[in-house]
Structures are given as structure tokens and as C-alpha cells.
């Protein structure tokens, strides 16, 4: 299998996953990240994907992927069966984000969540200056047909992590190109400048 270049946000997520880990990627799409983790990290890579096309692409890659969704299917997994549960660009589309996060940390010891930051200045500007729901390059849908029903900001996510007693092992904000903004900045800065947040959560012991 030839390795296509990994999306920058996927590369960041992959850097957090330890070698040989049991991984579940929730909303794994065509399995690009999973295939990378299986190949480069020797991960036992599993996935859940809503679209039949995505599942078929994954099956053809030899990945074990189930057609399903984050809201309904995580409950079927036993406790502690994964080292990492990944949710990339999907949290905002779930019906019950809090329950999904709790389930992720029940079935996995660690959770990695990447989500669009609704606190980004461009989004704030769209609402405050134009008085319109934002339509951006990363969030191209209009309010009435978007699958994204539960937007949050980086600070909202930090608050939710605290509420469910999850430990933040590592947090990164990504710029418009999907690359980490690097140096540690205060939350307010990331919340204003980051297009995406990527959080590595663990159960607080």
C-alpha cells in the first residue's frame, strides 16, 4: 500500500498514539489515519464510520471498521478495550457530545478529540459584524443544512473536560492550514486564533 501524505491534523493525532496501541477511530472516513497507525505504529486499528462508502474503502484496506455512529454504537463496547479512542471532526455533529466523550473514556484509557473552534475570530466576526451564522472554508455549510449541531469553542471544550473529570494530557490549537500553532499560549489566545483544537484526554485517576 502506498502511503499518501497524512493530513496535518492527522499527523498530530498520530504523534500522540503510542506504538502497538489498540485504537478506535470514531468517524474514521476512508481509514487514512487508521491505515497510517496500523502501518507506522503497529496499532491494532479499528473504526466506526457512518457512510457505507467509507466502510467499504476501509474494508478494502484490510481495516476492521463498523458502519455506525458515535451516538449509538460506543455503548456496545466493553470497558477498557482500547488504549486510544479518536474522534476527529465529529464531536460537533454528535447529538450528545458529553455522553460521547464519557463513553470514549469508558471504553478507552485515552481519548483524542479534534474539533473546529467556534471561538475563532473569523467566526466571531461573522456573527458580531455581519449578524450572520458563519460560513467558512472549514465550515462550508449554511445553518439550515449543516450536520454540525453542537459547536463549541476551545474554552467550552476545556470546561466540559473538567466537568467530566477528564485530565488534559496535551492540547494543541491548529492554524488555518491544520498545523499546530506551536508554543503554549493562554487559552484566550488559542480560543481566538485557533481554527481547530486537538485535545488528548485521559481518565483522571
Amino acid at each position: 500500500m502506498t502511503a499518501s501524505p497524512l493530513r496535518p491534523d492527522h499527523a498530530l493525532i498520530a504523534s500522540m498514539v503510542t506504538a502497538g496501541a489498540r485504537v478506535l477511530d470514531v468517524g474514521c472516513g476512508d481509514g487514512a489515519l487508521l491505515a497510517h497507525l496500523a502501518r507506522e505504529k503497529g496499532a491494532d486499528a479499528r473504526g466506526i464510520e457512518l457512510s457505507r462508502e467509507g466502510v467499504a474503502a476501509c474494508v478494502a484496506k484490510g481495516l476492521a471498521v463498523i458502519q455506525g455512529d458515535a451516538d449509538t454504537d460506543l455503548v456496545d463496547y466493553p470497558d477498557d478495550c482500547f488504549d486510544f479512542v479518536i474522534l476527529s471532526q465529529t464531536l460537533q455533529a454528535t447529538r450528545q457530545p458529553r455522553v460521547v466523550l464519557e463513553q470514549m473514556l469508558r471504553i478507552g484509557r485515552n481519548a483524542i478529540v479534534a474539533f473546529p473552534n467556534f471561538g475563532h475570530w473569523r467566526i466571531r466576526a461573522a456573527i458580531t459584524l455581519q449578524g450572520r451564522m458563519p460560513v467558512t472554508e472549514n465550515l462550508p455549510e449554511t445553518w439550515y443544512n449543516t450536520p454540525n449541531i453542537h459547536f463549541c469553542t476551545i474554552r467550552d471544550f476545556v470546561a466540559l473536560a473538567e466537568e467530566i473529570h477528564a485530565k488534559i494530557v496535551r492540547a494543541e490549537a491548529l492554524d488555518a492550514s491544520g498545523r499546530p500553532m506551536g508554543v503554549k499560549m493562554p487559552w484566550w489566545f488559542w480560543n481566538l486564533m485557533g481554527e481547530q483544537g486537538v485535545f488528548w484526554l485521559a481518565r483522571s485517576s
Partner: peptide, 20 residues
């Protein structure tokens, strides 16, 4: 889905597709 759930519970590598 019951089969898939049982296979997941024992950590088996399982894929599942529901075809339209």
C-alpha cells in the same frame, strides 16, 4: 448488529456493512 457487538466484546477484528 448483535453478532458485531459480541465480536467486539471479545476484541475480534470485525467489520460491518449495512447495504442499502
Amino acid at each position: 448488529r448483535s453478532i458485531v457487538k459480541a465480536l467486539n466484546a471479545c476484541g475480534a477484528p470485525v467489520s460491518f456493512v449495512e447495504i442499502e
